[in-house]
Amino acid sequence: MSPEFYVGLFILVAGTLAVAFPRDRSYVTRLINLEIPSWGLLLVMLSYDEALALFTFGGVSALTVFVFVRLIQKKEDV
């Protein structure tokens, strides 16, 4: 396979473990760690030449971060 596949797979596994077991259990740490496996999945999709999946996933991941940010802000206000 191409080097994109192996690098992306390593980031996917390492980032998922970092989201599941973060160093300090705050929401912002998990939110920033959540972006690591997102880029890993992007690289794995790239190694399989899925152009439409790449385009859609890139747009939706930013939207997901926005939704999580609104949720964290609402939870901190209460």
């Binding site: 912002v28 790239l46 890139g58 930013a62 940010v69």
Partner: peptide, 30 residues
């Protein structure tokens, strides 16, 4: 650069513009 080297220039442009956007969303919380 991995995306550019595969030839998906439109996706590279869109991704390079979307990535700072999600960072700025995270900075809103901080």
């Amino acid at each position: 650069p991995f995306i550019v080297a595969r030839g998906y220039l439109d996706i590279a442009t869109a991704t390079a513009l979307i990535a700072p956007l999600s960072t700025i969303f995270t900075l809103m919380v901080l």
